Simulated scan of single mutants.
Amino acid sequence: MRKRLGRERFGMIVGLPILILLVGGGWVIWRLNADLDDIEARQLEWSLLGTLFWQHLKVTAAAAVAVLVTAIPLGVLLTRPTFRRFSGPVIAIANAGQATPVIGLIVLLAMWIAFDFWTAVLALAIYAFLPVLRNTMVGLQQVDQTLVEAARGMGMSQMATLLRIEMPLAAPIIMAGVRTALVLVAGTASFAAFINAGGLGELITTGIKLFRYPVLVSGGILIALLALAFEWAGRLLEALLTPKGM
Rank of each mutant, 00 (worst) to 15 (best):
L48C: 07
V23D: 08
R42G: 07
R179W: 00
P172W: 01
I126L: 15
A233P: 03
L21S: 12
P214V: 10
L216M: 10
L36D: 06
W112L: 14
L5T: 07
A176F: 04
R9H: 12
A227N: 04
G234I: 04
V138I: 15
E8R: 13
F211Q: 14
L21G: 02
L222F: 13
I204D: 12
P168K: 05
G199A: 04
P172E: 08
A120K: 07
P81R: 09
I165M: 02
F211T: 11
R4A: 13
L108W: 00
A120T: 12
I93C: 09
F194T: 15
T188M: 13
F117M: 06
R134D: 05
T51L: 13
G104H: 01
W30F: 13
Q142P: 01
P168F: 09
P89A: 10
V215I: 11
A170P: 08
A171Y: 00
R85P: 00
V23W: 02
I13N: 00
G11F: 03
A125Q: 02
A92F: 10
S87D: 03
A114G: 01
R84Y: 07
L237N: 03
M159W: 12
M154A: 11
K3D: 13
V178N: 08
A171D: 07
G24Q: 06
M167V: 15
F194P: 00
L19T: 00
I223H: 04
P81L: 03
L124P: 11
A66Y: 02
A193Q: 10
H56T: 02
I72K: 10
Q55K: 08
V67W: 08
R212N: 11
G155P: 11
V107S: 09
Y127K: 08
H56N: 06
G24S: 09
G88K: 12
F230T: 01
A192Q: 04
F129R: 09
I106L: 14
T136E: 14
I106R: 02
G88N: 10
A120Y: 03
L5G: 03
G75R: 02
P73G: 12
P73I: 14
A186N: 07
A66H: 09
A193F: 02
A160G: 08
F10A: 15
S218L: 11
F191A: 14
A41C: 01
I29K: 04
